[in-house]
């Protein structure tokens, strides 16, 4: 179902889409790590959402459209994977076991961090965990909303966020070590 410009439904869609587009594009950018690809992906998601707008249940537009985006990305990713370009999405193989967390975080690790470094560290986190962390910590979504976006149970969301943060922590600690901000 499509709506003409000037149609209240078209205007409603545009209003809602405009409000969530920064999140949509930001998510696409952090998934693809390429501005042009992110533009294409977010546009494609928007078009799919527009075409399916009459099936939107009216509850949570942001979760709905982000689900379209992540599904689109995963499908594209899996297609690429079949073509032998990229790595695995398997959760069990996607990350090293989290490091033991007996010590409190070293403040110095965080004091020296810049945006680009955190972005870079986040980009190294395996995809399924990264998506969960981004939806939680950047988009501020609840576990239920993340479960809706990623179409997995809440327990899986909780696990993915924990593993994602563990991976992020490893990346940041490694960075701080390399830079000499902390010692082994």
């Amino acid at each position: 179902m499509l709506f003409r410009r000037g149609d209240p439904q078209r205007e409603r869609f545009e209003r809602m889409a405009e409000a969530v587009f920064p999140s949509l594009f930001g998510m696409a950018l952090r998934l693809t790590k390429d501005r042009e690809e992110a533009g294409d992906l977010s546009q494609e998601a928007l078009v799919r959402a527009y075409e399916a707008f009459d099936r939107f249940d009216g509850r949570n537009f942001k979760a709905w459209i982000l689900r379209i985006l992540t599904n689109l990305y995963i499908n594209k990713y899996r297609r690429r994977q079949r073509e032998g370009i990229s790595g695995s999405l398997d959760e069990d193989q996607a990350i090293e076991p989290p490091a033991p967390a007996d010590e409190a975080p070293d403040r110095q690790v965080f004091d020296h961090l810049l945006g680009a470094e955190v972005e870079h560290a986040l980009a190294q986190v395996p995809e399924v965990f990264r998506i969960a962390v981004m939806l939680s910590d950047i988009e501020g979504m609840t576990y239920e909303e993340i479960a809706e976006v990623t179409e997995v149970p809440v327990g899986t969301v909780r696990s993915r966020i924990a593993r994602g943060r563990a991976a992020l922590r490893q990346q940041l600690e490694q960075y701080a070590l390399n830079q000499g901000y902390i010692k082994k």
Binding site: P22, S23, F25, G26, L29, R30, A38, A101, A104, P105, F110, L113, L114, G115, E117, V118, E119, L122, V133, M134, S136, D137, I138, G140, A162, R165, L168, R169, L172
Partner: peptide, 17 residues
């Protein structure tokens, strides 16, 4: 504490594009 710090750090540094 790690969870809180990481959460804050991501929220603070990963700005909307």
């Amino acid at each position: 504490e790690w969870a809180v710090m990481l959460k804050q750090s991501v929220r603070q540094h990963c700005r909307p594009a």
